[in-house]
Design a protein around this nucleic acid. Sequence first.
DNA 1: ACCTGTGAAATCATTCACAGCC
DNA 2: GGCTGTGAATGATTTCACAGGT
Lengths: 218, 218
Amino acid sequence: MKSAHRRRTSSDQISELTTNRLSVYLRCLSELDIAGVQTVSSQSLAEQFRLNAAQIRKDLAYFGEFGVRGVGYYVRDLKRHIRQILGLDKSLRVGIIGAGNLGLALADYQGFKNEGFEIVALFDASVSKVGQQSKGGVPIYGMRDLKRLGKRVDIAVIAVPVTSAQVVADHVVSLGIKAILNFTPASLTVPPNVKVKSVDFTVSLESLSFYLANEAEA
Amino acid sequence: MKSAHRRRTSSDQISELTTNRLSVYLRCLSELDIAGVQTVSSQSLAEQFRLNAAQIRKDLAYFGEFGVRGVGYYVRDLKRHIRQILGLDKSLRVGIIGAGNLGLALADYQGFKNEGFEIVALFDASVSKVGQQSKGGVPIYGMRDLKRLGKRVDIAVIAVPVTSAQVVADHVVSLGIKAILNFTPASLTVPPNVKVKSVDFTVSLESLSFYLANEAEA
DNA sequence: ACCTGTGAAATCATTCACAGCC
DNA sequence: GGCTGTGAATGATTTCACAGGT
């Protein structure tokens, strides 16, 4: 092919399903790289997570032609490209709001540091927690300090009680933060230029409950 | 309509997107119930989470005709129905494997107890943790005890390091547990009659990173 | 007047299947 | 022979739009 590949413009909308899979591919590529594997085919990648090989090729093709016909993809190369696509080439700073059990656990979660996220701070409304730090050494600030330190935060993680979630979200938005990872079950309202991703444990558990009640006739 | 509604049989496959939304509707209905609201229309439910009203009606219609034309849905009634559909009318027992930061945080997470899940135990391989308990009082057992107590567990939550995730999953499956909530980034392999739901924090964060890098030109 | 339940249409996502290249 | 990139086909999900009931 004569590089008829049209560079993706920002008006093309990439599905979130695609970007989620890119994350998964990336993790797999990192493992392959560590294992010293040089090249990988969409076929063998697909087998790792019961996915369709064409889907992997298509996901990648949105962003460029990274493969070599007859060979597959060069692991290092593809890894580098995906990191760049996902914006992981520059380190992102994460602030966690809510230093309860969950917030503290997230602050020390190793998976984040690995891919270049930097947990810069915890914030909590409780005076007794301010000045403390997580086991892993992430300092806890008061909510007042959020205004001052917010400029240093690219992604806000909300791990407060559900009743304060919207207030916290509003605050975070007012500081110009454009990305929120929401661990509360609240359905947050934010302006259109702010992105919220929600992780809802209860929904996940209830989905399993449904399965047990309806489809697990084993 | 003359109740031409065909009862759903177990061979109909309900999409997971639908069951996830049922969870969300349920939470909303609980709030409305507490607020003393008696009836609600699909329209007003839809506005709460920027969803389409027809979608809500369709989700519910898979399971029966719960609404009243011209009126909407009776909040209590619908709440009871959804709880039954999701299997939440019987209390489910949850065992958490891995008593690290995350496992301990999950054990004490209030959201679970609220909808009738019972966290019966934590399990950990570290001898020093066995015999301890979470702040909220969930006891920590050794991995050996899993065999004995596994019969009392309907849903296994995996919150161990990624390297042991598959081993733990195999173990859990061998005990006859049919539902797993996986908090590790591992892509678990299980028999077809076992359901795995995965919560992957890194994927969520990276999805936000992609947004910041590509679509946040605000 | 208002609201549900549901076919039909539209949209979105995945998979197939094959030309083109190594 | 093996593998990518991609149009075309299929499948899944959402939305529209309206008949029918209160």
